Simulated scan of single mutants.
Amino acid sequence: MEKRYRPAWWLPGGHLQTLWPALMRRSAEVRVRRERVELEDGDFLDLDWLANGPATGPVVVLLHGLEGSLESHYLPGLMRGLGELGLRPVLMYHRGCSGEPNRTHRRYTGGDTGDLARVVALLEEREPDTPLAAVGFSLGANLLLKWLGETGAENPLAAAAAVSPPFRLDRAAARLERGLSRIYRGHLLRSLRASVAARYADRPQTSPVSLERVRAASSFREFDDAFTAPVHGYAGVDDYYHRASCRSYLGDITVPTLVLHALDDPFTTPDAVPGDDELSPAIRLELHRHGGHVGFVTGRIPGRPGYWIEERVARYLSGALSSKFHRPDQPLSHSATSLSPR
Rank of each mutant, 00 (worst) to 15 (best):
L260D: 01
Y316C: 07
W49Q: 12
R118H: 12
L188G: 02
G236C: 12
A217I: 03
L82A: 13
G53T: 09
R185C: 08
G68E: 02
S219A: 04
A197H: 12
N52Y: 04
R185P: 01
H293I: 10
T206I: 01
S219W: 02
S245T: 07
T337R: 15
G292F: 03
A198R: 15
L176C: 04
S69N: 09
L176Q: 06
S323I: 00
A198H: 08
V209Y: 05
T257V: 07
L47E: 05
G57V: 11
A55F: 01
Y74C: 11
G114R: 14
H334M: 07
S340L: 11
L339P: 01
H15S: 11
L78H: 07
G99P: 04
W9T: 04
A244V: 06
S338I: 07
S207E: 04
R34N: 03
V90P: 06
R213C: 06
P58S: 11
P21T: 10
T113L: 04
H326N: 15
S248Q: 15
V163Q: 07
G186H: 10
R247E: 09
W20G: 01
R107M: 06
G83L: 07
G179V: 10
V60E: 07
G149Y: 07
C97K: 00
E71I: 01
S72T: 13
K146N: 02
R300W: 13
D170G: 13
Y108T: 00
P21M: 11
P12K: 10
Q330P: 00
A141S: 14
E40Q: 14
P128G: 15
R203D: 14
P7I: 06
Q17F: 04
V255F: 06
L287C: 10
S322F: 13
E127D: 15
I183D: 00
P256K: 11
P230E: 11
K324T: 15
D41H: 05
S191N: 08
L39E: 02
K324G: 13
W9L: 11
G114M: 02
Y316R: 12
I183N: 08
A226Q: 12
H64D: 00
P7T: 06
M92C: 03
R6C: 04
S210Y: 02
L16G: 05
S338T: 15
A51N: 09
A133N: 13
L19G: 08
P208F: 04
A201L: 14
L82G: 10
D41L: 06
Y307G: 07
L123Y: 05
G319E: 14
R190F: 03
S333H: 12
D224Y: 09
A8D: 04
A117W: 01
R300V: 09
V32I: 15
L250S: 11
R80L: 14
S338M: 02
E40T: 11
D41M: 06
A134K: 05
P21H: 08
R26T: 13
L192T: 07
A174R: 15
L75E: 04
W20S: 10
E125I: 00
F267L: 09
P305K: 04
R185N: 08
P101T: 10
E71F: 03
D329Y: 13
W49I: 09
D238Y: 07
R182K: 15
K146V: 03
S323H: 12
H15E: 13
R243G: 01
K324D: 08
S218Y: 00
L23W: 14
G251C: 08
D329C: 08
M92K: 04
S72N: 07
P131W: 09
P89Q: 11
M79K: 11
H64S: 02
W9H: 09
R80W: 05
G53S: 12
D276W: 02
Y74M: 09
